[in-house]
């Protein structure tokens, strides 16, 4: 890890002093961009602390009355805790399986030559461009039919959603991990094999530890993908398996939208992923550098 950190620190442009025009452009550009980025975050935080009358009236930059009531109300208005559990189980399981499957596949692609390798990588990557809408309905029918034939309930269940989500992050994960594995010298795993390791134990003893930043990056990506998905979640879940992506829309009733609660709930559901991502983002940059950018 230290190596990545130091490699990044070395990247400066010229040793020459930058001219004024550059410094000013940079200052103005970065200030505007920061304002653009921060604005919704500010609205989210400040509105979540306002009473309902205040968010229903004209917008106020500085809240006139502060309250933390919305943070208690959000759990009552909709069963947010249940949605939370569903999202954690679904996204967590999808991440674990997706990373495991991607590690094996990337190992094969990186370390072996075999027939159909190119077909495999191209096919897997091209699934990324499928419009989700094209396979939403067929997938729904497949799950219903599997359920009828075998009794395994995939439609409406967490398992079905896990199965779906884990394939969403798979193509990118395989692609990035292959790049990462390629950057690990083959001598390392060959040496392990000479020492008596089989191919699988060489993978887990040598390659996986050496590629851990890449694996963390892929895990972060997979978790975020599953945590944020809306389309399949809104069709493939029922009342008991609903995830946050769908559940958050429950704060809008026919007559009224509890905007302060919507903002509080948005904040609460974002905190785990945002904190996790920001803590681990350097691995994602390192992973992209090794994997994608070649």
């Amino acid at each position: 890890m230290s190596e990545h950190a130091s490699r990044r620190a070395v990247v400066h442009r010229s040793p020459m002093a930058a001219p004024r025009s550059f410094l000013w452009t940079r200052r103005i550009f970065l200030t505007l961009l920061t304002a653009f980025v921060v604005l919704p975050v500010y609205v989210m935080v400040s509105s979540s602390l306002k009473p309902l009358e205040d968010v229903s009236g004209k917008f106020e930059w500085i809240p006139s009355g502060l309250t933390i009531r919305p943070y208690f109300d959000i759990w009552e208005t909709v069963p947010l805790a249940d949605y939370f559990v569903n999202s954690i189980v679904v996204a967590g399981a999808a991440t674990v399986f997706s990373v495991a499957v991607a590690i094996f596949a990337a190992y094969a692609v990186s370390r072996y030559t075999f027939r159909g390798k190119r077909v495999f990588t191209v096919t897997v990557l091209s699934t990324q461009m499928f419009p989700g809408i094209l396979f939403l309905l067929p997938l729904f029918l497949i799950y219903v039919n599997i359920g009828n034939a075998t009794g395994i309930a995939l439609f409406g269940s967490r398992e079905g959603l896990i199965l779906t989500y884990l394939t969403f992050s798979l193509p990118f994960s395989i692609w990035m991990l292959t790049g990462y594995f390629d950057s690990i010298p083959r001598e390392l795993d060959e040496a392990a094999k000479v020492d008596g390791c089989g191919p699988i134990s060489a993978l887990f003893r040598v390659i996986v530890p050496a590629a851990s930043p890449g694996i963390i990056a892929v895990a972060v990506y997979a978790f975020m993908t599953a945590w944020g998905e809306v389309l399949f979640a809104s069709v493939m879940t029922n009342d008991t398996t609903r995830t946050l992506a769908v559940g958050l829309q429950g704060y809008a009733t026919q007559n009224d939208v509890y905007w302060n609660q919507v903002m509080a709930a948005s904040l609460v559901v974002s905190v785990p992923v945002v904190v996790g991502f920001l803590l681990l983002q350097r691995y994602l940059v390192a992973g992209l550098t090794a994997g994608a950018v070649k």
Binding site: T34, G228, A245, M263, S270
Partner: peptide, 30 residues
């Protein structure tokens, strides 16, 4: 700044977009 700029990417889509929907409200939006 580098960390801050990644926040929109890290936020779940629905949380970010719902906040924008609030900001674009006609009568009580920012």
């Amino acid at each position: 700044l580098r960390t801050l700029f990644l926040v929109p990417y890290a936020l779940p889509v629905y949380a970010a977009v719902i906040t924008w929907a609030f900001m674009f409200q006609r009568d009580n939006g920012l």
